[in-house]
Design a binder for these strands. Structure first.
Lengths: 151, 151
DNA sequence: GTTAGTGCAAACGATTTGCACTCTC
DNA sequence: GAGAGTGCAAATCGTTTGCACTAAC
């Protein structure tokens, strides 16, 4: 996964200005392996920036996603972001339903999937959801049970 | 996949009233193997019902989803619905990026996925996207290229 | 006749846009 | 100093809700 520095470097290389807010964003994603919603990010940021507005958060998330330093996936309860995986090789993820952290799976089922000739495959999605050790131990499921994700 | 009659039957059994609109909905989903967005459904329905309102469409889609006759999945460009698969057995889907029709895949990669003990698996998602024969032949990709789904 | 279903308007939440001000480069 | 970045307010989009009316049972 991209580090804080790599994120900032990539942004700077693309001609983006490194503002204080963007440094904080880079740090947030560089140190966090989980998925964060726009609201999560806003809540994290507003502590530091009193007059923070939602649109700036959205703008920066979008810019960073378009630049490729962030990747987003669509959950049942909305779009979430995390730092891009260093794109060494194709892989999939296990995603914790509680903390949203991701763990790589190197196995890719496409190799063994029997795709009929009538269908030209373009892309695929393989995601495993569950609870990671830490969340399991802290009784995470109880808290998650009322969440949307489990539905 | 559930037929028009099975959908209506299930709704009636649950005490829902079978209105004319709901018959049309059941027919739409019973005869259509692809995913439809709320807007798609609205557009289909409004031809027949002049004063149709969006909220009724939403209400019915939600009711039918909660009842289990429809299933929804979240695409990049929003939530879409289709008739539930007769739940014979666990399976996955290939989904055409053009017409949104689905084709079953019986192979399930979970059996062969190496899940570490530290992670308790709850559910998984395996979806293959591409173009089906008919769409391929009608040069579908050109049209789809400007769509969101391909992004 | 009762109660669920419907249309309408209005509310709502998430996201986007236009504009003037501010800061990085 | 120029132009990107920001905050603010307002617009937009998709979806939901409250209410009075209509129709299915």
């Amino acid at each position: 996964m991209l580090s804080t520095e790599e994120i900032l470097e990539a942004m700077s290389e693309q001609g983006l200005r490194i503002t204080d807010q963007r440094k904080t964003l880079a740090k947030l994603f560089g140190e966090n392996t989980g998925y964060l919603s726009a609201k999560d990010v806003y809540k994290h940021m507003e502590r530091k920036y009193s007059g923070l507005s939602f649109d700036t958060v959205y703008r920066n998330l979008r810019v960073m996603e378009e630049l490729g330093v962030l990747e987003q996936i669509v959950f049942e309860d909305g779009i979430k972001f995390k730092a891009s995986c260093s794109q060494d090789h194709h892989h999939h993820h296990m995603i914790c339903l509680q903390c949203q952290k991701t763990y790589p799976i190197s196995f890719c089922p496409m190799n063994m999937t029997d795709t009929p000739d009538q269908f030209r495959v373009v892309k695929h999605k393989f995601e495993v959801f569950g609870y990671c050790r830490e969340c399991e131990e802290s009784g995470a499921e109880d808290k998650a049970a009322r969440g949307e994700e489990a539905k």
